[in-house]
Amino acid sequence: MRRRNLFIQLGISIALLALLGLLINNLAVNLIRTGLGLGFGWLARPAGFALAESALPFTPSDSYLWALTIGWLNSLKVIVAGLVLATVLGVAAGAARSSGNRLLSSLAGGYVALIRQVPLLLQLLFWYFVAFLGLPAAPMGGLIKLSNQGIQLLGLNLSVEFCAVLVGLTVFTGASIAEIVRGGINAVPRGQWEAFRSLGLAEGLGLRRIVLPQALPAILPALTSQYLNLAKNSTLAIAVGYADLYAVSDTTITQTGRAIEGFLLLLLSFLLLNLLISGGMAAFNSAVLGRLNRSR
């Protein structure tokens, strides 16, 4: 058995080395062909393009580095908001699905089934072109002002593009999270429900205090991979013209021809983002497991 494992590992190592060799070879060939050489000096040059949306001040005379940073922040903004909202939506829909309430349960079931049938790109285009651009030009609503120019929420100005990406990612990821949450909830013994009910606790309170905490160990690992998916899927923002990291990188590469460096930076940025997400989730996971282990 050990011997077989060793052979498998050896095989994988050789394959990886071969792949790496191929990549380095291609890189070298490309560098020679373009005659640009590998370098990052261009990052300091003015970008020359405008960004529709920036969390910090940005003008076309600012550097490429700053443009990419703004793009990264825009990505971060939509990803973090998406994580939070998708979790809320997913937990609510998952809880609704395993609730005794027929209407709630089938509503949530319909939502999950529908969303999982349709490709995310199509959903994003729907939210952008149909839902948000379909809003009237004149703002409507009180606390939340809706129009096809954007959304005003308590002094917060959100662009139509941002909203479309956010809603698209939230609704899409929420459906997957709902299934994960439902699975986790169903894995908690029925006796736990009966125990909290027999103490006169309300359903919502029992769900929050008794059932969900016990469902967490089953939910968290799968949740982490949904979070990583959401981060990756956020690059589809380019389809609706939201200036996320991928969109800014794309423009930058087109203008500078620095495809290799651009992709390296893109890779690194996403690596950093994913490490942040999985690191955060791992910390949360071990905190939860630690609490549960104390109870063993």
Binding site: P189, E194, L199, G200, L292
Partner: peptide
């Protein structure tokens, strides 16, 4: 339920509390 207590065969204590 607040006025009627119940005890189960499997105890059903909350393991995380």
């Amino acid at each position: 339920r607040r006025r009627v207590g119940m005890v189960f065969q499997q105890f059903n204590l909350f393991p995380h509390l």
